[in-house]
Amino acid sequence: MPEHMPNHALQPTTALGGRTLNTGSVSIYEVTERALVSLAFKASDREHVSAVLGGSLPAVGSSLASHLAGRLLGLQIDQTWCLIESTDSAMDKVIARKLSDTRGIYLTDQSDAWTILALSGDTCRQVLERLCPLDLDESVFPIDAVARTVIEHTGVIILRTGRDSFELITPRSSTASFMHAIETVVEHVRNEIPVRSQDRQQDPTTSNA
């Protein structure tokens, strides 16, 4: 490198630079040590793909754990995503090596294109119900359910990891705007309870009753 050029040592950073939020009743943090690989196939090859994955291929809308490819997310009839605890940037090739037969299966590493946010806490469902159009009642959207939908005009994949915990997978390029929307709603939810009790005290119809 010529002497007159500055020597910038570039450091990889995550989409939110490790930003976290914890209000006591809800916490959000960026999950970084995960790889995402999409696994696409022809709908007519579904049984073959299921057999190669050890007989396990989730129905659209659900997810399940697989010993070969992490957690499998059933997003479309002909597409399943693999969510794997790893920082390997070529996880598609790792999975391909594990499968006995990859004919008709298209594996693509998606890790760099997405951000995963873990959202949990007592009021996290109140936060999500203000943001997304899905019915998140446990009878409709139980633990391990997964759905692709939209939050604040941004595509998002929602995975339920517990009664009061979710993972939100959203495009990396718009993560900052996405996080801003969530932080705003978290603040609204946090302020809501005292505002309501104040309203009740000052409501003339209730004091006259």
């Binding site: 129905a59 659209v60 809308g61 009839i77 159009p133 899905l134 019915d135 409709v140 759905a147 939908t149 939209v150």
Partner: peptide, 11 residues
């Protein structure tokens, strides 16, 4: 048919 009732804004 696969996902149940979904909001029209997704379509």
């Amino acid at each position: 048919p696969l996902l149940g009732l979904r909001d029209a804004s997704e379509f």
